[in-house]
Structures are given as structure tokens and as C-alpha cells.
Design a binder for these strands. Structure first.
Length: 218
DNA sequence: GTCCAGGGCCTAC
DNA sequence: GTAGGCCATGGA
């Protein structure tokens, strides 16, 4: 089977097993962006706790973050590990949004995707995965998000080369799939759902719906 | 007590 | 250009 059909079939298999995920877990674009920064290198459960606290303190919009001192933000997001760093990152994004787009997310997402991606990457604390999560889930832009789960699972399947960098992983996906925003949202969501369920560092096991695709078995 | 989770930055070689 | 340290919580 060629790569395009394999990727299509993998998605179909996941969709049949888990159902549509309706992802990202966030109600507003603001919340999605905040979550994307907070989830860096930490499980989503810790992020939920933090977002709940931010909401309780009316700090779950970029504007409110912008108007609030870093020292007030960090204790609320303690549960997300590296909370001082992340408070700084949230402020950095808010400053960027207000300096360049008058604090207006609509204006931000009207920008050409490639240009916007470069702008996001220039913000200290926003790397490729975070930028792409923001573009796809908050901005409805057609970019595929690569994360630790994606690399781990597709390495097991044998489709990725371990020495690829982020851009190469992403290019591989986008070269071999239909460019469809909803598909990209749900494909990534399926991968994360699967990753959370059973993978961790272990090989894919018999319970895994992708077992038949898996080349690296114990 | 130990390990590790949906990263990214900075520094040193 | 790249490996390695740093950031510093909470659940299994």
C-alpha cells in the first residue's frame, strides 16, 4: 500500500475505534491558546487544573493576561510545571498580540498563515508545536501538528525516520494527506487519545487498534 | 522514593 | 548544528 492510503487507513481505523474527538479541549480561541502554552511538556490534567483557576480569577482571556502582572498569574498555573516560565510565555504572547494586532485575535488570524507562523515562532516561548496548535485549533489554519505522541506512534509503525526534524515530520504528513482542516484537527486528536491510552514508552500492544500497522513489535 | 508527562530556550562544545 | 541542562508539579 502506498503512503497516502496507509495514512488514510490509519485515520479511519482510529476513527472507527474511538469516534470523532471534537478537539481541542477548550471553549474559546483564547482558552485554546492559553492551553497550548500551558500543556508544554505536561499532561493535560495539570493544564485543566490551571485553566480552572484562571477562570475563577477571570484570567482566561489574552486581554486579561495582558492586563495582569506575571506574579499574579504564576501561582494560578503552578500545576502545569515550570509555572514561572509559562507565566512569562503567556505574557509574551499577550504582548505580541497587543503590540501587533491591537489585542484582536480576529485580526491576527487574518494574516497569511506562513507569515503568521513565522511571527508566532519569533515569540519567546512559542516553538513549532505550540505555534501549529494555535494555528490549527484556534485559528482554523491548515497545518498538521506534530507532537511527542505522533513521533512515538509513527516511529513504531515505521513510517517516520527517527532523525527527521519537526519540519520533515510535518512535511511528510502534509505531502501525503488531503489538506483538510477538520481532518487535521481530528487526526491529531486521535493520535493523542491513542497515545494517552496505551503507548507511553512501551511498544504498541495487542489492544492497540494500530497493531496491524506496527512494524516494531517486541 | 522514582519516573515521566501533548516543549522550548540557552549555553557550551 | 547539536547534545545537554534548565525550568520545578502532580499522579502513577
Amino acid at each position: 500500500m502506498n503512503t497516502k492510503n496507509t495514512l488514510k487507513l490509519i485515520y479511519k481505523t482510529l476513527l472507527n475505534s474511538f469516534g470523532h474527538q471534537n478537539w481541542w479541549p477548550g471553549e474559546t480561541a483564547d482558552e485554546i491558546i492559553i492551553g497550548a502554552i500551558l500543556t508544554q511538556s505536561v499532561s493535560w490534567k495539570n493544564v485543566e487544573t490551571a485553566i480552572e483557576k484562571l477562570k475563577q480569577n477571570n484570567l482566561c482571556t489574552i486581554e486579561q493576561i495582558h492586563n495582569t502582572n506575571k506574579k499574579e498569574i504564576s501561582p494560578l498555573i503552578r500545576s502545569t510545571l515550570y509555572y514561572n516560565q509559562k507565566a512569562k510565555k503567556l505574557k509574551n504572547f499577550a504582548n505580541f498580540l497587543f503590540q501587533k494586532y491591537d489585542g484582536n485575535l480576529k485580526k491576527l488570524f487574518q494574516t497569511n498563515t506562513n507569515i503568521l507562523r513565522k511571527q508566532l515562532l519569533s515569540i519567546n516561548g512559542i516553538g513549532e508545536e505550540t505555534a501549529d496548535s494555535i494555528l490549527l485549533y484556534a485559528g482554523n489554519k491548515c497545518v498538521f501538528v506534530i507532537d511527542a505522541y505522533t513521533k512515538r506512534i509513527f516511529d513504531r509503525i515505521g513510517l517516520f525516520k527517527p532523525d527527521w526534524n519537526y519540519t520533515e515530520f510535518q512535511q511528510f504528513f502534509m505531502d501525503n494527506t488531503v489538506h483538510d482542516i477538520e481532518l487535521y484537527k481530528d487526526y491529531h486528536a486521535q493520535i493523542v487519545y491513542l497515545g494517552k491510552q496505551l503507548c507511553k514508552r512501551k511498544p504498541l500492544c495487542d489492544k492497540c487498534p494500530l497493531n496491524n500497522f506496527c512494524k516494531k513489535k517486541k
